[in-house]
Design a protein around this nucleic acid. Structure first.
Length: 486
RNA sequence: CGGGGCGUGGCGCAGUCCGGUAGCGCACCUGCUUUGGGAGCAGGUGGUCCCCGGUUCGAAUCCGGGCGCCCCGACCA
């Protein structure tokens, strides 16, 4: 076997493994513009499945989709002070159009708060016009200095929700509710179990009062911020005159939230489930859940093909996304490697021997310890059980990821030395007390390269609350999770 | 934005030091034999050697200047 056909292993070089998997599984390819990529059909199919699932969840919670323009007047971006400071370095700006310089430059949206709240201001007069609960699926652009396929590209796809409410309490509840939606979505569909929590002031969104996030742990024990939900207070409302007349007759500023997840989740999926043979795609988001490979070449070829058509049709009728790989210019073995690299959960092989026995060969992308990879099972049984096998596979992926996260977590750490040691020994999330002082974050980052990923929500806190700050100076006001991060 | 590496058929590379017909593997095309874990044999197609300029009888190779991409660090979904 030619060496070049094999992937770099995760243990050899995780970053290189990631790049190879993404390209060789045909998720994406580098585009001619620096830091940008083409999302290929296999990658886009996964994204579409994510989109479909999350879109339904957002609609179930009362949101509607809309679309706002790509170009935003620079003056809008500049209105919210923290917001400009945060985004100015990574803005791409259009200064010329129609062959002439523009009077006012337009920013290509890095996010849409400004344009959206400017429009909300037009639409809202009284409390009866609230809440506004909109979402948009869009591309955005951030001129990143260092890029990586899916995880950080100059242009990426995402959804951004933007809501306006009459009260602070309602807006805060919205931000928390959405975080719950995100958490459920990534767990149930991507089989990625995140921590949830609140960002420190250092790490929060530019312009937010408070940012909530879901933080997932990758196989190299680096954290990935997988989704964020922000309570914006009245910061944007005040700058964009987003006012309404309250029930009591007073003029008040509205309260906003914004929240998003992006194609970064595709990268998260790769680094959560992939192995040295390539991708492992959770069944619920797999564009193909079962691939059928016919064993061709004998006198029975026509009969084998007919049987494959039949099994494919029956699986499809059972609600399984099935692909029949009937190419005759590629050998069966080559197809196995290809579909494994692409992470298809199950493979069904049908050959002349199966015709005689009424069986099929069933192969799972990940084989449980101690089981044979290839099982010959009666055709009817295979068809009948594949839907439940897919469900079980999905659940096992989530469980394995959760176990890995917990196994990599270190709790009860009392000092920065101990924190550094844990990280150097391969820890993922390290939990400590924190005084709330940003200087501690700076010191930890300086000494360990780790950042404060989240002030963790109650569910993720240690049984005994830490009493001291990890710095040794002062009492702890909250338990936090640190990690080196993407 | 600093440091490193690399630009040669679609992909991976050799050739560059020491200038002289542009090569290898994979892929691709045709034919035959194959097909239950990356098929074999035979024949073939395909390259302004990143760009611009210079030196030279002659440049992938030497000199000067650009550009691009990747990786590693500071900022970020």
């Amino acid at each position: 076997m030619a060496e070049e056909k094999k992937l770099t292993t995760r243990a050899e070089d995780f970053a290189e493994w990631y790049n190879e998997v993404v390209q060789r599984a045909e998720l994406a390819d580098y585009a001619p513009v620096r830091g940008s990529m083409v999302i290929r059909p296999w990658g886009y199919g996964i994204w579409e499945n994510m989109q479909r699932a999350l879109d339904a969840m957002l609609k179930d919670t009362g949101h509607e989709n809309a679309y706002f323009p790509l170009l935003i007047p620079m003056s809008f971006i500049e209105k919210e002070k923290k917001h400009v400071e945060g985004f100015a370095p990574e803005l791409a700006v259009v200064t010329q159009a129609g062959g002439k310089p523009l009077e006012e430059p337009y920013a290509i949206r890095p996010t849409s708060e400004t344009i959206i709240y400017a429009m909300y201001a037009k639409w809202v007069q009284s409390y009866r016009d609230l809440p506004i609960l909109l979402n948009q699926w869009a591309n955005v652009m951030r001129w990143e200095l260092r890029t990586k396929l899916f995880l950080r590209t100059t242009e990426f796809l995402w959804q951004e929700g933007h809501t306006a409410h009459a009260t602070a309490a309602e807006a805060e509840a919205e931000a928390v509710m959405i975080l719950g939606v995100y958490r459920k979505f990534v767990e149930e569909w991507i089989a990625m179990p995140p921590l949830t929590g609140v960002k420190s002031d250092n790490e929060k969104f530019a312009g937010a009062v408070r940012s909530h996030s879901i933080e997932a742990l990758m196989q190299d024990n680096k954290a990935l911020q997988a989704g964020t939900s922000h309570f914006l207070g009245q910061n944007f409302a005040k700058q964009f005159e987003l006012k309404f007349q309250s029930e009591g007759g007073q003029e008040e500023y509205a309260w906003n939230t914004s929240w998003g997840v992006s194609t970064r989740l595709v990268g998260g999926m790769v680094m959560t489930h992939g192995d040295d043979a390539g991708l492992v795609v959770p069944p619920k988001i797999a564009p193909v859940q079962v691939v059928i490979v016919p064993i061709l070449g004998g006198d029975d070829e026509a009969a084998v093909r007919a049987k494959c058509d039949e099994v494919a049709a029956r699986l499809k009728a059972a609600g399984v996304r099935v692909k029949l790989d009937a190419r005759d210019n590629v050998t069966a073995g080559a197809k196995y490697y290809e579909w494994e690299r692409k992470g298809v959960p199950f493979r069904v092989e049908i050959g002349p021997k199966d015709l005689a026995k009424g069986s099929v060969a069933l192969v799972r992308r990940l084989t449980p310890e101690g089981e044979k990879r290839k099982a010959f099972v009666p055709e009817a049984e295979a068809i009948a059980t594949l839907p439940t096998r897919l469900d079980a596979f999905q659940k096992e992926l989530l469980e394995a990821a959760r176990k890995r996260r917990e196994a990599s977590s270190v709790r009860g750490v009392q000092s920065i030395d101990e924190l550094a040691k844990a990280l150097d020994e391969g820890a993922g999330f390290v939990f400590t007390g924190w005084s709330g002082d940003p200087a501690v974050e700076a010191e930890v980052k300086e000494r360990t390269k780790a950042t404060l990923r989240a002030i963790v929500d109650e569910e993720f806190r240690s049984p005994a609350a830490p009493s001291k700050c990890v710095s040794g100076k002062g009492a702890s006001i909250a338990e936090v999770a640190w990690a080196r991060a993407y």
